[in-house]
Design a binder for these strands. Sequence first.
DNA 1: AGTGAAATTTCGCGGTT
DNA 2: AACCGCGAAATTTCACT
Lengths: 157, 157
Amino acid sequence: MDALDRRIIAALRLNGRATYAELGRTVGLSASSVHERVGKLEAAGVITGYHAVVDPSTVGLGVTALVGIQPTDTAADDDVAEALGSLVEVESCYAVAGDEAFVVKVRVSTVDELERTLGRLRRIDGVARTRTTVVLSTRFEARPNNEGLDEPPEEGA
Amino acid sequence: MDALDRRIIAALRLNGRATYAELGRTVGLSASSVHERVGKLEAAGVITGYHAVVDPSTVGLGVTALVGIQPTDTAADDDVAEALGSLVEVESCYAVAGDEAFVVKVRVSTVDELERTLGRLRRIDGVARTRTTVVLSTRFEARPNNEGLDEPPEEGA
DNA sequence: AGTGAAATTTCGCGGTT
DNA sequence: AACCGCGAAATTTCACT
């Protein structure tokens, strides 16, 4: 992984549909070289996928909440995590330090639906209590933290 | 927005680099129709972008934390949010209900760097206190919640 | 890493229902 | 309105140097 790879990654984080030709122009490489590098980055597990991002409110998911999951004394973390994963409303799941086992991000259509989802969460075996933080607005999300890899390409060659 | 649009969106959430031809085969439409629909979805702000997802640990960002931001009495939320956004380590920022104004997700290389980042957060004007939850493992993240739009295409035509 | 070439895709446009 | 086919330009994706 060199500086060129990092520049390619940065560009693909900004625009996941950038063409190889376009990326090549950005970093100063031929399309086929970019193609090869990207293939290696994917194979190495550096790039794990490409996803369209959808405005949740436009698809009827206007309510977001962060929910801390307090486990019972006897809970098996992996089983709880799996059960959390089986709920489509649970978008992300982090195992955390502290007296909560997990923090999950939940996305639903209405507060009514949020209430129902919290019920489902509490009914999971191994879940003792939930602590819900309602999101009022998402200021920014999943922002690419491009560790200073945004210098323009060289020209002299 | 009809069922076809939702199917296209679902497919693009799974694979943001799917070609229009491929999407057309998936949903049973011509490439040009898909092209037109996707263009409209983008223009309507339903699809807000396409991003490559990178395994953070492979790019030296192995430490994740969720940080609650307690504001001072006189804090201006928008100013605080903007200041949070100026830190590259802050990947997401949610304004929340409760006695914390924001919850942010922070991604850094080491716990040392986390400590420095928390210092930067506390030094922001309008920030009274921070409450940090260290992420031990990410079980899943940014999972596409495809509201049951995954039926296969029809064949009889 | 680059070149070259064939297969594929993009994307605007006209025509159809 | 939405869909499709057409076709030129661009891109992808190889094998090869």
